[in-house]
Design a protein around this nucleic acid. Structure first.
Lengths: 294, 294
DNA sequence: TCAAGTGATACCCGGAAGGCATCATGTTTA
DNA sequence: TAAACATGATGCCTTCCGGGTATCACTTGA
């Protein structure tokens, strides 16, 4: 195999068509350059330059090899630069998972901020429930997640993005909308309820159950997505407990009423990541966003 | 700048994820391979592999650098092969000039034969008069020409492709078509004539003047292209002397009559090239077509 | 606690690459 | 026409890079 020095030597001679000047350009003397080219030609197995004692010119083979040599040199010069960019986190791919609920409010502005900080990093977004996010973070398929507790703080580090109250979603025409004060369990004890799935949306389920004495007999639907819940409320199938940011969904025919118990029990959204960080882009992001590391 | 050995070393380690096995694959021992990688990382300015004493894995930077490294190696392996192909004439470009007259008959079959012999050689065709061809062959813009004498046999080598008789082109309805024998100058001494340009088509001009006592007073047009001549004959502007292959043009309203003098004086078409051959594809072509060289 | 596995280090040696001096050859100049 | 010049190739010397062997350092598992 030839060397990059030989390629550089050949390119210089091919451009100058003069061994002396080419050698000068390469900061070396002419004799070793001559031998370099000879060796290169021997390795290639073809004459690249035709030189008589007066003039040097490229052969046909030399002409096309010159193109290849230039391409090689360009590639070789670019490769370390991109590698360094990625190592410093200024470039690369950041795979982010998010729950549908987090997408309403926090995701947009945060992506805005990320692409402001690291414009050359590609963001790969995936909607995943918390459990899938944890799994992805473990296997390394995911760099960062937006999810809700609980998660193992041994393996994951996290940063609280925000808390919000739970509110009650009711159809616009519903009598409760006229009440004008924070609601208690008593106010909707006979209303049909749309509840969170205890498996797919355990966080919300646990929180609501902890917050209010639910009449399980009143539960008419069990769903896992906030959007589905609000749509069902709009269709007058019942009432639902949703985080305050669901107001941003902008679905017609639904109103959101404050809950007395919601003042205390709030839902949290965390950014979380594997403590064993392998992606430099993530390290840079956490540093720049000033998320607590450790 | 890094070396190809370092790249090969890195690729091997990245694929094996094990220094010992990678070294074995490269037919070397493990220690120099370790140093090779260290040196490469230092040159790149980024960590490519993360190794603790138990396992080796790629960093993000290492992953993308691996792709670049593979591309570099592939390019480096291909480059000499193409260079050799071109040097041996099995690939490359062959620039061929031809006169319009030669295009009628010889060009088609010859191109067929060339592309059969050297399928990977690109043929660049240009229609040029003999003088332009000679010029192109001199400057190296042309590799091979199809033209008619005279040309300097010091600089050019040539191969006679074929000879053909001159015939007389006459309008279909012309009385001479009824004659039924070879024509002499006497037969058309009062007819209007379309003659070759003594500058642009000197070969034909000289040949016709040598062959027949032309009444210059009868010359109504002076043109340089055979096709133009035949078209003018079809338009009943006069009679013209053209090579026999002009019959292949298939122009309506023209007949071609044999000339007595045409039996002796024949026009020649030569393949010709610069004796100083720089294009390996041309050398190969001449050898394979068994054209005389020297 | 010890053996096995694995990457890093220390040291030595041979060969490759660069520098200097010079040659061979063709061109220009006096 | 001969001498000076220009230019690529060669011979020889020295330095330095890269590979090999032996060994270390550290981790893991029995």
């Amino acid at each position: 195999m030839f060397t990059f020095d030989q390629l550089a030597g050949f390119i210089a001679v091919a451009e100058e068509l003069h061994f002396g000047r080419a050698a000068e350009r390469l900061n070396m003397t002419q004799p070793p350059l001559s031998r370099q080219i000879q060796k290169l030609e021997k390795i290639i197995g073809a004459e690249l330059l035709e030189r008589d004692n007066r003039r040097v010119e490229l052969t046909s083979a030399g002409e096309t090899f010159l193109e290849e040599a230039r391409r090689l040199m360009a590639l070789a010069e670019r490769a370390p630069v991109t590698a360094r960019r990625i190592a410093s986190g200024r470039s690369g791919v950041l795979r982010i998972g998010f729950t549908a609920a987090s997408g309403f409010s926090i995701l947009g502005p945060l992506l805005e901020e990320i692409s402001g900080i690291m414009p050359d990093v590609d963001i790969d977004l995936q909607e995943l429930v918390t459990r899938e996010q944890l799994n992805g973070l473990l296997t390394g398929e995911l760099d960062l997640g937006f999810a809700r507790p609980p998660f193992d703080s041994e393996t994951f580090d996290s940063h609280l993005l925000y808390r919000e109250s739970m509110v009650l979603a009711v159809p616009s025409s519903h009598p409760l909308t006229l009440l004008g004060r924070d609601l208690t369990a008593e106010d909707f004890k006979d209303e049909p309820l749309i509840m969170h799935s205890p498996t797919q949306a355990r966080y919300f389920y646990d929180l609501v159950v902890r917050m209010l004495p639910i009449q399980h007999a009143n539960v008419v639907h069990t769903v896992s997505q906030i959007l589905t819940m609000v749509s069902l409320v709009a269709a007058k199938r019942g009432l639902a407990f949703v985080p305050h940011s669901a107001t941003l969904l902008g679905i017609k025919g639904v109103e959101f009423l404050p809950l007395e118990a919601g003042r205390e029990e709030q839902v949290e959204l965390h950014a979380l990541w594997n403590r064993r960080i392998t992606n430099p882009a993530l390290a840079r992001l956490l540093r720049d966003l000033e998320f607590a590391m450790e």
